[in-house]
Nucleic acid binder design. Structure first.
Lengths: 123, 123
DNA sequence: TCCTTCCATCGATGATTGTCGATGTAACGT
DNA sequence: ACGTTACATCGACAATCATCGATGGAAGGA
């Protein structure tokens, strides 16, 4: 079972980090530090899963969307939920987003932990 | 009095955002999505304030450090705490970091709010 | 078997960004 | 007034990145 790193870096009182940790952390922040990828994540956040074709509405070419999905995938922020025919459905990886929030000093929200563990529905 | 935007974008259940909000949010994420700037923020997180000269130990030229400080300053993540002679002391802006954590779904930590209001010491 | 659709990968290109040396500016000491 | 120190700004350059058209592969339908 792979455990996500839970490093705090930027909140008041955060302990000093090592150079390698800055590298890996900033790499994951780079993944969301783009308007298009933020929009993709935002859409996935409000659905269980979304088809790739749904992102056509972002007004970018198909290869570009595919590129951004790859970046987010390699950062561990999203993953392929399932395929249906030639349609790919992506889903958010809440633990990964939460790990980034934690790095910035945000406390994990109890509902989110629950939602992650059970599989659905906070609120 | 300027109020910091408290937008949630990436946690499960986050509401859909507007294009402009993706722009401004990603702009602030870009600020911390760099190893050097992350190291700067990390150092400021463990001190009340730090002299610019202290960042020489990062192994970069003085203009480069100055550039990164500017990026962080314009993102609102840090600010000049005070000047003493020709020495500049920077300090973290905890509310700004917290706003980013909130955007990722992290709940604000009560201690941090306290620390911000009082001026010191969580834990 | 052939065609179509959905998505990934490749290669190229223009834009953004991190980095540095050179220069400017403000404050201090002599 | 002069030199020195700390920091900012400018200009240049190399590296990274977002974007697109072209191509490839997999799955389904006729």
């Amino acid at each position: 079972m792979k455990k996500l790193a839970t490093i705090t870096c930027c909140a008041p009182g955060a302990p000093p980090l090592k150079p390698k940790e800055f590298e890996s952390l900033s790499a994951r922040f780079k993944a969301i530090a783009d308007p298009t990828r933020l929009a993709i994540v935002n859409r996935l956040a409000s659905r269980d899963a979304a088809c790739v074709c749904e992102f056509n509405s972002l007004g970018l070419s198909q290869p570009t969307i595919s590129h951004h999905l790859k970046v987010l995938r390699e950062a561990g922020l999203i993953e392929v939920a399932y395929k249906r025919g030639t349609y790919f459905f992506y889903r958010l990886v809440p633990e990964a987003v939460e790990a980034l929030a934690f790095a910035l000093g945000g406390a994990p929200q109890p509902e989110l932990v629950l939602a992650t563990a059970e599989g659905t529905v906070a609120r």
